[in-house]
Computed example of a mutant assay.
Amino acid sequence: MYGRQPKGEEAEEAKKNPHTKKGKIRLAMENKLKNSSPPSLIVHMPDIYGPNAENTILHETLKGVAQNKTANFVGDKKVAREFLYTLDGAKAMVQLAFREDTYNQNWNIPAVHPITGEEIIQLLREETGYKKPVRAVSKTMIRFIGIFQSFMREMTEMMYLTKDPVVLNGDKYEGNIGSFPKTPYINKKPGTRLSTGPSIE
């Protein structure tokens, strides 16, 4: 719902000026929540990946690699974007939900750090031995695939984020709640492969 923004990290108070249908709907939902009587928790997250995140951009890449097939990467592989591990996002939301002073305001939950598609693919190759090519999926290709898949049809207008991504600033959370749960893209412990992330306690 931020719409196109200047380069840099976006804090919660950044002006929201969505130019897409999906962004305008999200902003309308947020405003309705803020003007309603029940308390609400409004959380902004980047694209997610991990357990139970099968309808996401990065899942398309991970699925191809896991099946040892030619994989797809949506967007420009050279642009650094944020990808948040599902369990990290869930833990951060739970921490917010258990406090009484976090409701009726916005919170950003950023990823561990922005990462390019090229870096993701290289990590996957090093950790799994994957050798097949990875196709960059363009807006034109998304539009064509959208004829058959509704999820991809919705993605067409959001493709601007793969060229000019919004990067979330997490200072408010860290200043008021504490450190974010941050699962590294690769588990560096000896003898392990791809990180599956921490368990939820």
Rank of each mutant, 00 (worst) to 15 (best):
N17W: 04
I145S: 09
Y103F: 15
V166Q: 05
S37C: 02
I57T: 12
N169T: 07
K7Q: 13
P133E: 10
K131H: 06
G129L: 02
P39W: 04
G89I: 03
K188L: 11
K163D: 15
T156R: 07
T183P: 00
P39S: 08
N187Y: 00
M45V: 15
P133C: 10
P46A: 05
L124V: 02
D76H: 15
Y49M: 12
N35H: 13
M158L: 15
H44S: 07
I147L: 13
P38R: 06
E126H: 03
G191W: 10
Q105E: 13
M155S: 14
G64Y: 00
A111F: 01
L124T: 00
T86A: 12
G129M: 07
N35L: 12
R4S: 13
P18I: 02
F151P: 06
Y2R: 01
K182H: 06
S199E: 15
K91Y: 07
G3L: 03
I57Y: 00
M158C: 10
I121T: 12
Q67N: 14
M155I: 10
E60P: 01
N169A: 13
R81V: 07
T183D: 09
E30I: 06
F83H: 09
T56C: 13
S36F: 08
E54V: 12
N55Y: 11
V167I: 15
Q105D: 04
M155F: 15
L33E: 05
M155T: 14
N106M: 06
E12S: 02
K182P: 00
L41G: 06
D171I: 00
K77R: 14
R26Q: 14
K132Y: 09
E100S: 13
M159K: 05
I177E: 05
F148W: 08
G197I: 05
D88K: 10
G50D: 05
T140V: 14
T61F: 12
K189L: 08
R143Q: 14
K63Q: 13
A71H: 00
L161P: 00
K78G: 08
A53W: 03
P6M: 07
K22A: 11
E30R: 01
W107A: 00
N169I: 01
M159C: 08
S179Q: 15
L168C: 03
T116F: 07
M158G: 00
E174R: 15
V79A: 03
K24G: 04
K7E: 14
N176H: 12
I109H: 04
V94N: 00
P184I: 01
P18D: 03
D47P: 02
K34S: 05
M1L: 09
Y185D: 01
R153N: 13
R4G: 06
F180Y: 14
G197E: 11
M141C: 03
I42Q: 05
H19R: 05
K91N: 06
D88R: 03
S195H: 02
N176F: 08
G117T: 08
L58Q: 04
T56V: 11
